[in-house]
Design a binder for these strands. Structure first.
Length: 563
RNA sequence: UGGGGUGUCGCCAAGCGGUAAGGCACGGGACUCUGACUCCCGCAUUCGCAGGUUCGAAUCCUGCCACCCCAGCCA
C-alpha cells in the first residue's frame, strides 16, 4: 500500500491505490513522461511531469522519461537538450531510464509484421485525400479501402519494400484492420506507419517509414513496463485503440511485451493571462513579442526559471491546483501565491529604491558614513546579517512621500516622522520642488536617539520605509514584468496577439540599491524590501551587467485600500 | 438517436447513500522596524436543471440543458 505521501487525494491516486490493492501488475507502479522533442516545456508540462513522478514515488514505483520521437519532420536535438535541462531543474529523477521511442523501431517493425500475419493490418495505396474521403464523417460511417483484403504475402512484401525505400512519401501506409463503421474515428482503420524519407535526429537515415503515435505509444508503454500511462483528455477517444494495440502486442509479441499498460486521462493545465499552446508560444517568440523561449514573461519552464521562480514553488502549485478531468483554468494568483510562499522563507532581504526621491539628512555630518547591521532574513538568525551604509544623502521611494497625505497614510509627509528601516527615525522638515512644482528633494532631520536596535526615544511610528545611501549605492538595472496579456483568457480571442499587454516590460536603469545587490552570485533571489522578489539574471551577468528580473510582488494591502 | 468527455463557492478541488474538506481570491480583526509574513474570524441550508427511488441523495435512477474533444500519412 501507499506510504504517507504529500499528495492530495485525486482520482488517479485513488485509481492506482485500487490497482495496487488488487495486485494488478504484481502491485507494481511505473509511470513515464513522454515529451515530443519539438518545442520547449511549459508549466502545463510541469504538471504532467510532476504528477507522473510523484505518483511513482508515492507508490514506491519507477518513473521513466521517454522522448516520443516518431516524427522526424518536426523533431530536433535542440529540443531534447532543453527538455532534459528543464526536467533536471524541476528535480525529477528518472535514474537510468531515459528512453527514446526510436530505440525500439526495429521491434515495432516486427510487431507490425506480426499484425499483418495475423490479418490485422494491411498496406493501403489510397492517397491521403482518398483516405480522408473513405474515412467518412462524424455522422456517417466510412467505407472500406479497396486494398483492405490483400493477402498476407502481398502485405508483407509491400511493407518490406516500404521499409526499403521503394516508394515515395505518401504513396502507401500500413493500416490496422479494425472497423470502418465505428463511431470512433480512431478505430476506422487507423494508419500505423507512413513513409517519410526524412533524416531522424537519432536514427539518421536508417528508416524511411515511421510509426504513428497511436501505434507507437501503447507499444512502447507496454514494452517499458509502464503500468499507468497518463495523458491529457483529448486522448480519451484514442483509448480503445491504445487497448487494441496493447492486447495485440501482448498476444503477438509475448517475448518482449508483458505489461498490460492502461491509459488514464486528466485535464491539461490552463493558466489565466497566458497562453499554453506550442503554436502560440512559438509565435510570441518568432514574431518578437518576447525575447525568446526563456523570456521571463513566458510560461515556459525556462522562462519561469529566468523569472526567478523556484522548482519548489512550481511543485507546490501543481499540488495545490490539483488534478481532475474537468476543463479548468487556474488563476495566476495561485501560482504567485506559491512563489511568494516559497521565496518568503529563503530570499534574503536587501533594499533597493525603484523610483528614487532624494533625501538630505540636514543634521547628519556631510562626510560621515555609519555602517548598520541588518538581518538577511528578519527573524531568522541563521541567515546572518550584512552591513548597510547610512549617510547624509539617501534615496527613498517616491511613493513613500506624499505632500498631502490621505488618512491612514503612515509614510512620510511634511512635518511627519517615519522610520528608515534598520536605521533612524527621520522627520520631514522641508520639501524642495523644481519650477514645475515637482518634488525633487526632501530635507529631513534624524533623531540620534532612535537608532534601530537601541532606540531610547520611546517614539512609536507607524511607518517604516526602505532607503539606500546615495554615496555608496550600487547601480543596478531592474526589469519589471507584468502579465503578457491584458485578457484573462487570450485563447478565446479572435487573435490572441491583439490582447498582448504593451506594458508587460519596463526596464529601470541606475536603480540605487545597497551594495549587497551588486556582489551577489548569478541566480540570486532577493526580496527587495517592501517591493517584491527579484532574480539576478545569469545571462546578463555573463555580459557584465547587473540586471534583476521582477519575479513577483509582495501583497500590497495599502494599494488595495486606495482603490 | 455519430462517438467520447465534463458540470460541487469568484478560481481550483475533495466527496463514492448518512446529512458540503481544503487551497487561492475576497471581507473583518490582531500582530508588525517589510501596510510583507504570521495569527484569529467570516465566506455553498447547497452540489447544471427537473422529476423519481430512499428514513436519508452531491452521491442511485430517468429525462433535459450547457460546455469541451474527435473527420493529420501530428503528438
Amino acid at each position: 500500500m501507499a506510504k504517507e505521501t504529500e499528495m492530495q487525494s485525486n482520482f488517479i491516486y485513488t485509481l492506482i491505490s485500487k490497482d495496487v490493492a488488487e495486485g494488478k501488475n504484481d502491485g507494481r507502479v511505473h509511470t513515464r513522461f513522454p515529451p515530443e522533442p519539438n518545442g520547449y516545456l511549459h508549466i502545463g508540462h510541469a504538471k504532467a511531469v510532476l504528477l507522473n513522478y510523484k505518483l511513482a514515488k508515492a507508490f514506491n514505483g519507477k518513473f521513466n522519461v521517454r522522448f516520443d520521437d516518431t516524427n522526424p519532420v518536426k523533431e530536433e536535438q535542440e529540443f531534447v537538450d532543453s527538455i532534459l535541462e528543464d526536467l533536471r531543474w524541476l528535480g525529477v529523477d528518472w535514474e537510468d531510464r531515459l528512453y527514446y521511442s526510436s530505440d525500439s523501431f526495429e521491434l515495432k517493425y516486427e510487431f507490425a509484421r506480426r499484425l499483418i500475419q495475423a490479418g490485422k493490418a494491411y498496406v493501403c495505396d489510397l492517397s491521403p485525400e482518398e483516405i480522408r474521403e473513405y474515412r467518412g464523417t462524424l455522422t456517417e460511417p466510412g467505407k472500406e479501402s479497396p486494398y483492405r483484403n490483400r493477402s498476407v504475402e502481398e502485405n508483407l512484401d509491400l511493407f518490406e519494400r516500404m521499409r526499403k525505400g521503394e516508394f515515395p512519401n505518401g504513396s502507401r501506409v500500413l493500416r490496422a484492420k479494425i472497423d470502418m463503421a465505428s463511431g470512433n474515428l480512431n478505430m476506422r482503420d487507423p494508419v500505423l506507419y507512413r513513409i517519410l524519407h526524412v533524416e531522424h535526429h537519432r536514427t539518421g537515415d536508417t528508416w524511411c517509414i515511421y510509426p504513428m503515435y497511436d501505434f507507437d505509444h501503447p507499444f512502447t508503454d507496454a514494452l517499458e513496463g509502464i503500468t499507468h500511462s497518463l495523458c491529457s483528455i483529448e486522448y480519451t477517444d484514442h483509448r480503445p485503440l491504445y487497448d487494441w494495440i496493447v492486447e495485440n502486442a501482448l498476444e503477438l509479441m509475448p517475448e518482449v511485451i508483458k505489461t498490460r499498460s492502461r491509459q488514464t486521462e486528466f485535464a491539461r493545465l490552463n493558466l489565466t493571462y497566458t497562453v499554453m499552446s506550442k503554436r502560440k508560444l512559438r509565435r510570441l517568440v518568432e514574431e518578437g513579442y518576447v525575447s525568446g523561449w526563456d523570456d521571463p514573461r513566458m510560461p515556459t519552464i525556462s522562462g519561469l526559471r529566468r523569472r526567478g521562480v523556484t522548482p519548489e514553488a512550481i511543485a507546490d502549485f501543481q499540488e495545490k491546483a490539483g488534478v481532475a478531468r474537468a476543463d479548468s483554468t487556474v488563476s495566476l494568483e495561485l501560482l504567485e501565491h506559491c512563489i511568494r510562499n516559497d521565496l518568503n522563507t529563503r530570499a534574503h532581504r536587501v533594499m533597493a529604491v525603484l523610483d528614487p526621491l532624494k533625501v538630505v539628512i540636514t543634521n547628519w555630518p556631510a562626510e560621515k558614513t555609519e555602517m548598520l547591521t541588518l538581518e538577511n532574513l528578519p527573524g531568522n538568525k541563521a541567515a546572518g546579517t550584512r552591513q548597510v551604509p547610512f549617510g547624509r544623502e539617501l534615496y527613498i521611494e517616491r511613493e513613500d512621500f506624499l505632500e498631502n497625505p490621505p488618512k491612514k497614510f503612515f509614510r512620510l509627509s511634511p512635518g511627519k516622522e517615519v522610520r528608515l528601516m534598520g536605521a533612524y527615525i527621520i522627520k520631514c522638515e522641508k520639501v524642495i520642488k523644481d519650477e514645475d512644482g515637482r518634488v525633487v528633494e526632501l530635507h529631513c532631520t534624524y533623531d540620534p536617539e532612535t537608532k534601530s536596535g537601541s532606540d531610547k526615544s520611546g517614539k512609536k511610528v507607524k511607518g517604516v520605509i526602505h532607503w539606500v545611501a546615495a554615496a555608496q549605492a550600487a547601480r543596478i538595472t531592474v526589469r519589471m514584468y507584468g502579465n503578457l496579456f491584458t485578457k484573462e483568457n487570450p485563447e478565446a480571442e479572435e487573435d490572441f496577439t491583439a490582447c498582448i499587454n504593451p506594458h508587460s516590460l519596463a526596464t529601470l536603469e541606475n536603480v540605487p540599491a545597497e551594495p549587497a545587490a551588486a556582489s551577489a552570485p548569478p541566480g540570486t533571489r532577493f526580496q527587495f524590501m517592501r517591493k517584491g522578489y527579484f532574480y539576478l539574471d545569469p545571462e546578463d551577468l555573463k555580459k557584465g551587467k547587473i540586471v534583476y528580473n521582477y519575479t513577483v510582488g509582495l501583497r500590497d494591502s495599502w494599494a488595495k485600500m486606495q482603490k
